[in-house]
């Protein structure tokens, strides 16, 4: 209980021209915590995720991350090289569109193995074995390890992207609508997998989703965004069962019962 946060976001803001995509966003994330960011499309969820994951330089505010070594890195003040090192080692990023997070010119197995090699794995046999194990975990047919991701369906590509990101055991995963567009059976498998990774390996995650059921099942805490602002934040079950802000009440009452 006395540990320090893994990620601290302070007064973060970003504008496209004169229109603020997100403003005044402040929250922290502790090791092993899963935070869901919910809100309608255009509410600034993805912009926020890109700003805190080192992809889009915010106009205002700070993002602080506690590295494996226990040092606090100011994500947008450190060198480009340090930031890239973080994205390769401590972080994983799952894009909404799997093709943005995969390399289509190499095989499925290589997509997974690449991340391992980036953190120093060298023995081909081990890398292939690990890639096979991950394909199994996300219910991909391991016999297709040498196929190109282009030969995979959208849902399969998404699972491949997730295994590519999690194989190197990042401490923090950023996910943009990770379950959108997946078959319900695969979505359930993925939720279980993510739940296991967070509870067993202590993985922390920030998950952008418009699916409140995903937030309820996966996230300890939920942050609600509307028009670039954080309108409500708290324990997921509090936010969903006892929403205080009018917009959250609208969101919750609009969701289809599962």
């Amino acid at each position: 209980m006395d540990e320090s946060p893994l990620l601290e976001v302070q007064e973060l803001g970003y504008s496209y021209g004169t229109r603020a995509a997100c403003a005044g966003i402040t929250f922290d994330l502790y090791p092993g915590e899963v935070l869901a960011v919910v809100g309608e499309s255009g509410s600034g969820k993805t912009t926020l995720l890109r700003c805190i994951s080192g992809q889009l330089r915010p106009d205002e505010g700070r993002v602080l991350f506690q590295t494996r070594a226990g040092e606090i890195a100011d994500v947008w003040a450190v060198s480009e090289a340090s930031r890239r090192l973080l994205t390769r080692t401590d972080w994983g990023f799952v894009h909404q569109n799997p093709r943005d997070g995969l390399r289509t010119d190499v095989s499925a197995g290589a997509n997974i193995g690449e991340r391992l090699m980036a953190i120093g794995a060298r023995r081909y046999g081990n890398i292939r074995q690990e890639a096979t194990a991950w394909m199994y975990k996300v219910e991909l047919d391991a016999a297709r390890i040498d196929d190109s991701p282009q030969a995979f369906s959208g849902g399969m590509q998404q699972r491949l992207q997730i295994s590519r990101n999690l194989v190197s055991q990042p401490r923090l995963a950023f996910m943009d609508e990770p379950t959108a567009g997946l078959d319900v059976s695969v979505q359930a498998r993925l939720l279980d997998l993510l739940r296991g990774l967070t509870s067993d390996l202590g993985l922390s995650a920030v998950i952008v989703t418009h699916d409140l059921a995903v937030a309820r099942l996966l996230a300890h805490r939920t942050l609600v965004m509307q028009a670039g602002r954080m309108v409500e934040a708290g324990l997921t079950d509090q936010v969903l069962d006892d929403p205080q802000h009018a917009y959250t009440q609208l969101l919750v009452s609009s969701a289809l019962p599962a």
Partner: peptide
């Protein structure tokens, strides 16, 4: 704070709700 509440729920306080809400397929 949320994480204190979670800690209480993990170690001190249990709750039997009227409905079971779980991840499918588990």
């Amino acid at each position: 704070q949320p994480r204190e509440v979670l800690d209480v729920r993990r170690y001190t306080m249990g709750y039997v709700s009227q409905f079971l809400r779980v991840i499918p397929r588990v």
